[in-house]
Simulated scan of single mutants.
Amino acid sequence: MGTLKNEYLGNLRTEGLHIPSGNKIITDAPVDNMGKGEAFSPTDLMTFSLSACMMTIMGQVADREKIDMSGLKTDITKVMAANPRRVAEIHISFAWPNLVLSDKQKTMLINAARTCPVAQSIHPDIKLEVTFNLY
């Protein structure tokens, strides 16, 4: 048995279930692709997963190095291509106001983000633009 299930609900909407926790997530096709745009689209989840994975791996390094991760945020922009319809670019901007880090700590956190499993799984044709505003 897998750890995830997904069910098509109709009207270009799905409901995913994380079996171990019982948590659910809804996806909706975006308005520009015949959907209602009332929930994350599958491609939104893809780009969000990249950001979440980066933050998670950074968090592991931060825990080890005794760095408080509170306040770390990202802004994510997805750029779609038309033919074929696909994610062409992902722009992620990290912001962490009022942070004091050594250059070594910044390098460790940036390297952790860039080498997370989702980042390593992104097709090389997708342009990744990641900005780290680690003050």
Rank of each mutant, 00 (worst) to 15 (best):
L134G: 00
L45P: 02
H123K: 14
L4Q: 11
S21H: 12
I122Q: 06
Q105L: 06
N33L: 10
I122V: 11
G71Y: 02
E129Q: 15
V31M: 13
V130Y: 01
P97V: 15
L12C: 06
T107M: 11
L109A: 01
S41L: 07
A29L: 09
T3L: 13
M1Y: 05
T131F: 03
M34E: 15
D32P: 06
G35W: 02
I25A: 10
L17H: 07
I110F: 00
Y8M: 08
K106D: 00
F40V: 15
P30N: 12
I76N: 06
L134W: 03
T14H: 14
V100A: 07
F132V: 03
M108F: 03
L72C: 04
G35I: 04
M80N: 07
D103E: 10
L9A: 02
A29S: 11
V31F: 04
R64E: 11
I90N: 05
G22L: 10
E38G: 06
I19H: 14
F94Q: 05
A112S: 05
D125P: 02
A112Q: 04
I19S: 09
L128E: 06
E89H: 15
H91F: 11
G37L: 07
S51D: 07
E89M: 13
T14A: 09
A112T: 05
N83R: 13
I90L: 04
V31C: 07
M55S: 04
R64Y: 12
G71P: 01
N98R: 10
V61E: 06
P124M: 13
G16A: 08
T74I: 12
L101I: 03
A113L: 08
M34L: 11
A88D: 04
V100I: 07
A62H: 05
G59T: 07
A39Y: 03
S70G: 12
M80W: 03
P124L: 12
L50F: 01
I90Y: 02
E15S: 12
R13I: 02
I110H: 04
V130K: 12
K36D: 09
C53V: 09
S21T: 15
L99Y: 01
E15L: 10
M58W: 03
S51E: 06
K73Q: 14
H91Q: 14
M34H: 12
K36L: 14
E15H: 08
L12H: 09
L50P: 00
A82D: 10
Y135W: 10
D32L: 13
M54S: 03
L9D: 00
G35D: 02
T43K: 12
K73T: 13
M69I: 15
T14Q: 10
L12T: 07
P84F: 08
G71K: 15
A95W: 08
I67N: 04
G10T: 13
D125G: 07
M1D: 05
M58Y: 01
G35H: 05
A88F: 01
N23D: 12
T74D: 05
M80K: 13
G2F: 14
T14N: 14
R85S: 04
H123P: 00
A119M: 12
F40N: 09
P42H: 14
